[in-house]
């Protein structure tokens, strides 16, 4: 099983584990791949750890602790799961007023505003319509009513093309589905959204500069790839995600929307992605991050908006937020 729980709810996960245990008792061997440490420790008898395509070792699960696993996965002691927060939110940068989807089962009457230099988390259970909301903002889904303001100016976004023009960026939840161009090179994957900046004499691309762009980003985000010409599909999930982030960095947007940015990514790469987010926030960018991982929401956000059944159920400040309050809001309308 390869990351079988990445889109399951907690009760579904428990159900899956019951099935796995039943199979185990019948004498079936199960190979279970996961980046979620708690799961690994809960379900396995023996654990094999790999890093960068190499075998690191095999241990009995009862001999392992979370720290030991992380250490072997990252190759060094990882003291903190989250980088220290250094950003300070400024004035309002982006505002959504009373946004309602054309689909009556999707998001309705959502209003929120975000600030420069802020990491704005969006939490909720699977099915809370968070992805639909940000895709609606980005012009990928149709909207019945509502307004969007960027730097206090009203903007119209009918399609992703205009969202990008206004300085919005979206790292989607489904990396394979609408993130990467699997058969294209790392270079083309990085460059696709910012090609306008590389046109010379009005029609011709400067391929040397495109290579440079890719190489700079590979270094800056320490993307592990044999070359800029490598097809992105042969990279690991974490490195693919960093390529997609580079794609948007090249456009230099003001508002970054990240939908489950660390799903299916190992702890080392997660830390690097958090660092990039903080870095961007320090530069005065706004980060809107959807996450289903409670600890991630609490660890990196300045404020957390929680949704339930398509409606906004509350916005918590970092200082007052905790797991119980988020859970209560996530189930508020159920």
């Amino acid at each position: 099983m390869d990351e079988p729980t990445s889109s399951l709810t907690q009760s579904e996960v428990n159900q899956l584990f019951e099935i796995i245990n039943a199979l185990k008792n019948l004498g079936v061997s199960i190979i279970y791949i996961s980046h979620k440490m708690e799961e690994i420790l809960k379900i396995s008898d023996e654990v094999t750890i790999m890093r960068d395509g190499k075998y690191i070792g095999t241990w009995l699960a009862k001999e392992l602790t979370m720290e030991k696993i992380i250490k072997s996965m990252v190759g060094r002691e990882l003291v903190n799961l989250y980088p220290p927060k250094t950003n300070t939110p400024g004035e309002v940068s982006f505002e959504v007023k009373d946004l309602t989807s054309t689909n009556p089962k999707s998001f309705k009457n959502v209003s929120f505003s975000t600030h420069r230099g802020e990491i704005f988390g969006i939490g909720g259970l699977v099915g809370a319509q968070r992805t639909e909301l940000v895709e609606g903002i980005f012009g990928l889904r149709s909207i019945k009513s509502g307004e969007i303001y960027l730097h206090n100016k009203k903007i119209e976004i009918k399609q992703p093309h205009s969202a990008v023009k206004h300085g919005l960026a979206l790292v989607t939840e489904d990396r394979r589905g609408n993130g990467i161009f699997g058969v294209l090179s790392v270079r083309d994957n990085v460059a696709v959204a910012s090609l306008d900046d590389f046109v010379q004499f009005h029609f011709m691309l400067n391929n040397a500069k495109l290579n440079q762009l890719a190489e700079t980003n590979i270094k800056k985000l320490s993307i592990k790839t044999p070359s800029t010409k490598t097809k992105i599909q042969s990279l690991s999930g974490g490195n693919q995600q960093k390529v997609i982030i580079s794609r948007w960095l090249a456009v230099n947007p003001d508002i970054f929307i990240l939908d489950e940015p660390t799903r299916g990514i190992d702890v080392g790469a997660k830390y690097e992605i958090y660092s990039i987010m903080l870095d961007l926030a320090n530069q005065g960018k706004t980060i809107i991050m959807i996450s289903s991982e409670m600890s991630e929401l609490l660890g990196i956000s300045d404020r957390i908006m929680v949704m339930c059944e398509g409606r906004l159920s509350g916005i918590l400040d970092r200082s007052e937020a905790n797991q119980e309050k988020i859970m209560a809001l996530a189930t508020a309308y159920m």
Binding site: F138, L140, Q159, P160, H161, A163, V164, K165, L170, T172, G177, N178, G179, I180, F181, G182, V183, L184, D188, A191, V192, A193, L195, D196, V199, F203, M204, L205, R247
Partner: peptide, 21 residues
Amino acid sequence: TKFGKYIYAIGGNESAAEVAG
């Protein structure tokens, strides 16, 4: 040209091309 890159991008993954503007 940009046109050419877009041709490959659309063929490579049309949904991703849409998101990328």
